[in-house]
Design a protein around this nucleic acid. Sequence first.
DNA 1: CTGAAAGCGCTAACAC
DNA 2: GTGTTAGCGCTTTCAG
Lengths: 339, 339
Amino acid sequence: MIKSKSTSLDVARLAGVSQSAVSRVFSGASASKATATKVRKAADALGYRPNSLARAMITGKSRIIGLVVAYLDNQFYPIALERLSNALQAQGYHILVFMAANGEDTVIKVVEELIDYQVDGIITASVAMSSNLTQRCAVAGIPVVMFNRGQDGSGHSSITSANVEGGRKIADFLVAGGHKRIAHIAGWEGSSTGRDRRRGFIDGLADHDQRPIAVIDGMFDRDAACKATRALMARPVPPDAIFVGNDHMAFAVMDTLRQELELRVPQDVSVIGYDDVPLAAWAAYDLTTVRQPVNRMVEATIETILAKIVDPARPTQKIEIDGPLIVRGSARIPKGWTQ
Amino acid sequence: MIKSKSTSLDVARLAGVSQSAVSRVFSGASASKATATKVRKAADALGYRPNSLARAMITGKSRIIGLVVAYLDNQFYPIALERLSNALQAQGYHILVFMAANGEDTVIKVVEELIDYQVDGIITASVAMSSNLTQRCAVAGIPVVMFNRGQDGSGHSSITSANVEGGRKIADFLVAGGHKRIAHIAGWEGSSTGRDRRRGFIDGLADHDQRPIAVIDGMFDRDAACKATRALMARPVPPDAIFVGNDHMAFAVMDTLRQELELRVPQDVSVIGYDDVPLAAWAAYDLTTVRQPVNRMVEATIETILAKIVDPARPTQKIEIDGPLIVRGSARIPKGWTQ
DNA sequence: CTGAAAGCGCTAACAC
DNA sequence: GTGTTAGCGCTTTCAG
């Protein structure tokens, strides 16, 4: 029966070897089969496990990745977190989570604490970083990769889906569907994702000689999206289609349309979202949307950050991953639409 | 312009004091106003911040709490995680997240790694711990609190909602609504929450001289719940009401009922869930359910674990928090129902 | 109140 | 291969 925490020295004494021999066995350095067995046996007897903190201090590698995330109510993020955590775990890394409801101050505080913990890298999900902060991370030698948000000139790597393209795909689809009065409840104007989707969408409409009858910033927020929907439908000439900047808001738009305004989707109004979170596929919404390929985005994120941890000189990358339009039942399907 | 990471010794030299003086200033120990100012100034100039890992090693307190969670697709958990993280951050603690898809092996591995990181405490969300593991945590002196899951004789504290009572409330409501053929798609049989809700429900029905026409284990899983729904409705005498073990499954049940079987809820079948996740309130589902008061559960969890960190001798607690039945539109409302 | 000195538990040269 | 010897950056006695 094991009584209390033991150290490598305890193990060394029991095994009759030096303390460094124990260290070697556990850190995978060279050791003869004979000592390895002795050490393992002694360690098991004592319930010994190496102290990660001490190891981190010496090696300068904590094997902790800091994750800064703004909110978890949009299903896209918990899913990403789950995948990120699983993949990182498989590589022997762990995630220290920080919530940073958008607000420069919180982010600063959070990143400082992350630096204090000597994290090997930082992943930010839908959070922007000031250049001052960027500078701090650089000084601390901590690579940063931004997940689902780009920031030009930030000096950080970023992984996003092809948002501009995505916006275009939606414009094409809606126009092909014969819609003439198209509106857009956009993602937050302060985010690259929101801006890029909007830009692609407007450019795409322009290619067909159309322009949106209205564009409202939905702030990636449910309530704002509901309000925007009401405003849109109260216009003298209401839209016959709405592209909503992400699925999370699109659900709110559909709820408002169907429940409050008693309109049918897509017969009265077509609705399209962005993300393809699991909920979009559920029968209650059956939402047409552009898929952000979470798995591939997560893979790219991990690859990028781990590469930069191993080789800090590695240049910054901006990776964009293309995602398909997923056609479901919330928007009118153009005649003869195949792809 | 700051060039690279600096240590307390660098600060000490620049400030013209001893290294221990610097330590005192940053750890809040006694120091004269004069030295404090000198030290602060030098630290700012160098961009110095104390190394949390080194501090943790000395003090034996990492201020890291390990969180073990099985899945994040049920909205209840990300919300809890968000709240937990926020509250802990406010107290100067941080969360190291581990995913442990149910499976004893993963949990063991994960908890071992948590111990290696010298976490101050462990919170498990919907994850069970073997007595062997419990023993290990005890040896390492790490308090464990189980969130949303109880485990008798585990020696750990647990925070749950009043699941037995909740099950009863649902039975009362359904019977009052005049239902005569009530079925139950239960939460996973291997979980205390699933079992308690079922037991309360069955006991509650018995008080009205009824018994469920069928009980199927839905495993807290969407697909299993869909399958169970089909099986239930294919019976010669299908149910007129279904109590589903949590909201996450209830959504699947409603999707299957309405879309696939073309039945109306609640006119053809009443559906009741458990948890009251945000989605339950959205118009598309408008689900009647029992609320698990996340905020209060989180508060209790944090209070319990912090208290045990400060005073390890503190006795184990099993806290149950009562939650109300939230009446919405997915189940027939009994005539004259007030409360 | 402050500095000197002794480690926390471990890894990483360095000789043998 | 293996033991010996230095520390990693900090907190904490212990004198003064």
